[in-house]
Design a protein around this nucleic acid. Sequence first.
DNA 1: TTCAGTGCAAATGCTTTGCATAATG
DNA 2: CATTATGCAAAGCATTTGCACTGAA
Lengths: 155, 155
Amino acid sequence: MPSDEPAALTERFHRYLRDRRLPVTRQRDLVAETVFRAADHPSVEGIERNLRAAGAEVGTATVYRTLELLEAAGLVRSHDFGEGYRRYEPVTGDSDHEHLVCLRCGRVIEFANERLERMLPVIADEHGFQHAYHRVEIYGTCQDCRRRDVGALGR
Amino acid sequence: MPSDEPAALTERFHRYLRDRRLPVTRQRDLVAETVFRAADHPSVEGIERNLRAAGAEVGTATVYRTLELLEAAGLVRSHDFGEGYRRYEPVTGDSDHEHLVCLRCGRVIEFANERLERMLPVIADEHGFQHAYHRVEIYGTCQDCRRRDVGALGR
DNA sequence: TTCAGTGCAAATGCTTTGCATAATG
DNA sequence: CATTATGCAAAGCATTTGCACTGAA
């Protein structure tokens, strides 16, 4: 059975809203669905583009407000990869993961490494820090962009 | 012999400027010295506060422009710890290091871990990425802030 | 004297907020 | 019907840029 992550997240979002007597609105569902289904860590602009393409439209302020809500609910995480804006991703049941960011095309891919995840709390402890969370980002050139470079050199 | 890092960096900065026939100005020296001597990863505001305290004054635009120059010269690095502004640190002869950021007081301390530094390029490679650089930040509560919390609980 | 730097103020770009109106439960 | 959300436009903020003036070499 294929785990329908987006549907599960949507259900959790609805429960979260109901529990605090907050209205479930068309806009909230549209934004939530868009992020839950996204595989590319979209920015607010990307989310709006996606919505527009689907014939929907949600005010920018509402998009930001809904993302804040989704983060508070623990259903979405935001990242700042130093591009001048934030990107968002759904929080799936998968274990912790970190990111590889391509400096050429901006693509972001995820990786999981248990040894790394185990190391960081230990390092924090060694320095008297109580570990809360961490962030590991590797910047470089992705496979596709490397191939493209090689191809350009070849002719 | 105590290695006088700030002086060495200042000399390198002057050489960098001379080499490209760029003027050495009072403002550039003031900003550079301030960052070279800082041990706390100051922000632009912190740098300006520091300068003001020393009786000097440099326009904000010039501070930004000088920092850009210092980064291009490889003498200063900038970091974004998600606070809404950037922090700067001198590039010393020390090996690579990463950062621990206290969520309570904002203090930033550095740590070096060879195993970690060796791992990341390997991980990149495993995913077809050509590693350029990376960023590892551990967020948590520093020793002082933990002590303060315990003290508050005690009474 | 020439070429680049400086500082002010205005512009930017993402994100947040105020407020009148609209929709949910 | 009461309460909260929405959307627009305005405000915020760190950072960048345009431009007349100043200063370094």
